[in-house]
Amino acid sequence: MKRKILLQLVVPLLSLCMLFLLLAVQPDPASRSVEPVELSVILRETDTAALNAARQGMEQAAADLNAELRLLTLTTAGSGEEQRALLEREVSGGAGGVVLVPADRETLADSVRQAAGQVPVVTMETDMGESGAKAWVGADNAALGTALGKAALNGVRPGETVLLLDSLSGDNAVRERLEAAAAVLKTEGRTVEVCTPGERPLSDALKTALSELRPSLVMAFEAGALETAASVLETVEQPAPLLYGAGASTAIAAGLEQGRITAIAAQNEFAAGYLAVEAAVRLARHQTWETEDPLEFSILRRENMYEPDSQKLLFPVIR
């Protein structure tokens, strides 16, 4: 009899208690929180300041999706070798995912392939899908170059020289943009010269090229180079060549406003940063991530830079 009561009462009671605990505990949001994903963001610059908007996007995404960012800068800007070393170190150090702004496809191909086997690798600007990178966030580089080239046609008469800055040696987005722009300009009968700084600082190389080639238009294909070119051209005696370029930062916006830069092709850097981190986090969590269409970009000039949409694109809302 005693045993029967024990069985009848205590066992179901205990199981009900267990059930209750499970019920009570499960919906608690704190206990459902997922482990943060540790993302290594390998940049191409020595400084995160230039990438302010993209960084804000990354941080926003990290906060939204519970990720931890490790922003890694280089000691030498645009060094593929250094990126490779960083990439290998981060992957072996147990990063949950990598966001990479590749400096050079060739140098990085192998290590990206290797890294992609272990963690999701998302590249920005330069698509490295062929090397196994899981996602790419950036504008259509060829289209951007073409658009920039077309925009520049107004600024340079046929026969005059356009100087294109190949600021990042290697196979990357800058190269793609440059080639597309060069193709447009050449077919329209403009002389195209390419300035490759190589080992020298870009500013020095540009100065030399300016004095030698006397171009009527200079074109840069990434934010850093555009900023440098803007500051170099300021020091050049009048008439300074027009400056076209790709990239968006407050410094570039200021240059645009002050007329140092004539036109830019800009994408929403905040969105780029956000999407890159989102892609990496989702992939690291084994969720699906459709590589979206390339980001949209627009050609901005001084006249339209304060239009509401351009404002939203150029200036992140300060929080």
């Binding site: 540790e38 995160t48 300041a49 890694l72």
Partner: peptide, 27 residues
Amino acid sequence: ISTMARQLQQLFQEEEQGRGIKINLSL
């Protein structure tokens, strides 16, 4: 301040390499 921030970032990155630990610096 931004100069200092940059320097901090670099120094921590060096420290990280030197010690073989991960330092997540958030500015």
